[in-house]
Design a protein around this nucleic acid. Structure first.
Lengths: 379, 379
DNA sequence: AGGACTACTGAATCTGTAG
DNA sequence: CCTACAGATTCAGTAGTCC
């Protein structure tokens, strides 16, 4: 039991806005202008859910070129520029304060970000009194690689889901999530593709917004944590993914956006949005990747010790497993597949079936190790 | 705003400790007591990597960090929350300050946590001047379900990897990670099982430590970001997973722990850990770390005759090798890299892979000449 | 129609050394 | 501090063209 639980349990009164009842608010509409000013104009406790995709404050350096020569089309918009971390924190506190005020006592807030900003946003949420319910990892099926080989591929973004306080009740459609996930509890990591193809909105042939979010992501968020008819506010509306999905799911929406070019695209898009049919929904959500296991994982997890000697079925060659999952044969080394191919003079090779362990009573392919691993570690 | 302001301004001096050279520090050993006091006793810039799994339950460290006199007078019933979050932040800042001081300028720090504390830790890292390189998601293959069905199954933990500053160099064994992941770049989401079965340390039949980390996790961290012989410090040592894996991988370790019951288990465990021999420890090296060969050397030594005609893969251009190792294309000339870049209109080009020899049965990159040369002339 | 091949793209804190 | 330059570096997916 962590400190935050202990502390909040002493605080019995939830520090949350008061329900105002039927205040008149502009639903299914877009408010033009600065999100803090526009939120300030809304009454207390009128929103069921807030979904926010604030600027990430990326702090990119110069141009980045791909290995084949192309230039990466980076986010260089003014709205993502902040002079200091302190300035970003003040901005975050300002919009979170308003968000907390207009959110109903039993409403929840979702915020999405990357490592550039999400830690500051998460700390600010806690400082404001929000109670974190989950952090959710959007694992991108097809992220941009790290072209220079300097870091791990940045293959995910983080969402935080929080209520007004520890004792607040909130909407969580447990059964719907379980159904969506083939009768298994929905986990905190979601595998979804990035937004591209037909879904990606274009203007004059180029992307209308640099960071358009996939509808599948919003679909899951809204389906999990709102009821039909709920009012969903997105203070950083962009091209209106939140509005489009809300409309499709029978939720009401309010968007706030200040860039006229995004507004045009968003309104047109939402006007065209139709309720999704079941098959489209199923496809959208079933980005299940089959479990792939790298040979290196077996080394890391102790299923195959570094130093183990492998051989091919005819015992023509021997290889030693190294700490990084590579195989050493004489002075040459490489992955199980590469070394198998090299030794045979073949263009490719399935290392899983080529390499064998000497198990005393005979050789067995290393694929059996993978099967053992999968048996022990499949959900 | 102090540090935060300075760090946010790009390309400025990294606020980092000074290298002290050969300071005497106690390696491969466990220091008993409070981690802040023990780190304070270590010299500046003596550690290559810090791996930290800090508590988020202040029961472990709270006594030292109760608010001193003259503390913030918080308002109404928020005082306890503010007070306790503040105490956790002071604790975090205190140990991070020491960590930053004892870490070498080109060392890196890893911290693991969950949504209860990771946002505060991440923000504190940035406030101290650390530069986040990646956030990593440990995706648990077999997490504890959410029994009450009130939230998403909490199926991951977050790690942050950071350097001393934006311009700091750091160790990242890119090629080894790529090999470990079946020839694909290692991503920021790591699928690994939780610690259980034989690996889970028991004492009197119950688990010896509530949050023992799997060795596979530390294995990947240490393999990715340290070199053999590096000194790895773990200020929240627990049952010594970091020490056991460091010993296995030929890294030196320092652990700090104050609970006697964990210390006993840790020392016994590390004593039992078997170090891998040097051949198994060898990992795949990036081309970056291979000895450089100038193209001119290949011309001088006869591996490529002056007058040889080179072409790109699509045979769009032809170039003639000159005696000084430069290439002539029409009236223009320059290095293999410069000419490749010029012809493509690209900012840069790797001439070794751009230019090809016509070898009768097909084109082969001139990089194969370099490989041949290296094989024949390496010690 | 369909397969092979090419071109392009996505929230990216993306080089290192010598002079 | 700067500039110059050698040279290392990419995954999954969509769309279009050609045969």
């Amino acid at each position: 039991m962590g400190v935050m639980e202990r502390v909040a349990s002493r605080r019995k009164k939830a520090v949350a806005p008061v329900e105002t009842g039927a205040a008149t608010i502009p639903v299914d509409s877009l408010l033009r202008g600065d999100c803090i000013a526009q939120m300030a104009a809304l009454p207390d406790a009128c929103i069921d859910m807030i979904f926010a995709d604030p600027p990430y404050n990326l702090q990119l350096g110069g141009d980045l070129f791909r290995p084949e020569g192309g230039r990466v089309d980076a986010v260089d918009n003014d709205w993502d520029k902040f002079d200091t971390l302190g300035a970003y924190d003040r901005f975050t506190k300002a919009w979170l304060t308003q968000a907390r005020r207009i959110l109903k006592p039993n409403g929840t807030i979702w915020v999405i970000g990357s490592y550039h900003n999400i830690f500051r946003v998460g700390a600010a949420l806690q400082d404001e009194g929000f109670w974190i319910l989950n952090d959710i990892i959007w694992r991108k099926a097809n992220p941009m690689p790290n072209f220079k080989g300097t870091r791990f591929t940045n293959a995910h973004e983080t969402l935080i889901w929080a209520s007004q306080g520890e004792d607040a009740r909130y909407t969580f459609n447990y059964k719907a999530m379980k159904t969506l996930n083939d009768e298994l509890q929905m986990r905190s990591d979601w595998v979804l593709p990035i937004c591209g193809g037909q879904e990606r909105l274009k203007r004059n042939g180029t992307k209308a917004h640099p960071t358009q979010k996939p509808e599948a992501l919003l679909y899951r968020v809204l389906l999990a944590c709102t009821k039909p008819g709920d009012v969903v506010l997105d203070p950083f509306f962009g091209t209106g993914t939140t509005g489009a999905v809300a409309k499709r799911l029978g939720r009401r929406w309010i968007g706030i956006e200040r860039e006229e070019s995004y507004i045009e695209v968003a309104l047109e898009r939402i006007a065209d949005a139709l309720p999704l049919d079941e098959s489209a929904l199923t496809i959208m959500q079933s980005a299940k990747s089959q479990p792939k296991v790298a040979f290196g994982t077996l080394v890391e997890t102790g299923y195959c010790q570094p130093g183990t000697v492998l051989t091919d079925l005819k015992r023509r060659w021997q290889a030693v497993v190294r700490a990084d999952g590579s195989l050493a044969v004489g002075t040459d080394s490489g992955s199980i597949h590469k070394m198998g191919a090299t030794l045979q003079g073949a263009p490719s090779c399935n290392g899983w079936t080529f390499w064998h362990l000497d198990a005393g009573e005979g050789l067995k392919p290393i694929d059996t190790l993978r099967q053992t691993y999968l048996l022990a570690n499949e959900p």
